[in-house]
Design a protein around this nucleic acid. Structure first.
Lengths: 104, 104
DNA sequence: CTTTCTAATCAATTAACTTTGATCTGTTTG
DNA sequence: CAAACAGATCAAAGTTAATTGATTAGAAAG
């Protein structure tokens, strides 16, 4: 059982936003501090901070404080579990063997 | 390249709702008509209709009309692609080999 | 052809989420 | 310790999404 529906919902909501997708993709390249993210994505500090909070509360990302900087990184387990949850739904709806239905 | 970020966003938004997750799970068990879904989920007809529309516009589900009934079913390809997109993000963030990173 | 049934749509309300600018806290530097 | 910096937080405003009840359209049955 990969993930409860309630937690899946919170993760999906935390991902279902263009800015937050950009953040996830940026963090896919490795840990970033907030100042790097504001520069890379061209966002106001407080706006980014809001979105980081939503993502952190969903468990999608984690913060690491170092001096006066805060570094964020993806929390890959939950992302993977969400992917598996979706893949298993897709598999229920069609028996395409390439999709690793509910196994592992 | 599993899925564009923009389409992923629309799919995620279409999934990020408790009612719509219930619908997806119900449709995971196979095609259902609207009247069955209203009964199973205990929803007002117009409320369900609204959510079905959101999901259909995202490409998550498809409708099939038959007489005076409309049957809905999952569109497994997009679900699978979304799962793959998430899994590849998870893989970027950690080299857990069990997650089929970007392959196939 | 009128009634009934399924389901979509619409307008109005309500609720949820985002953005913005300001302020506040903690950290480093001079 | 004062100034500068990184970030979080907050309240107000703006925007988007969801709920509700009523209406509408098409299909089947009487």
């Amino acid at each position: 059982m990969p993930l409860a529906a309630g937690q899946a919902r919170q993760l999906l909501k935390a991902l279902a936003d263009p800015i937050r997708i950009q953040v996830v993709e940026a963090l896919g390249g490795g840990e970033r501090c907030v100042c790097e993210l504001t520069a890379e994505l061209g966002l106001a500090q407080s706006k980014l901070s809001f979105h980081l909070k939503v993502m952190k509360e969903a468990g999608l990302i984690e913060a690491r404080e170092e001096g006066r900087w805060t570094y964020y990184h993806l929390q890959p387990e939950l992302l993977g579990q969400l992917g598996a949850w979706l893949a298993s739904l897709a598999c229920q709806a069609s028996r395409i063997p390439a999709l690793t239905c509910g196994s592992s």
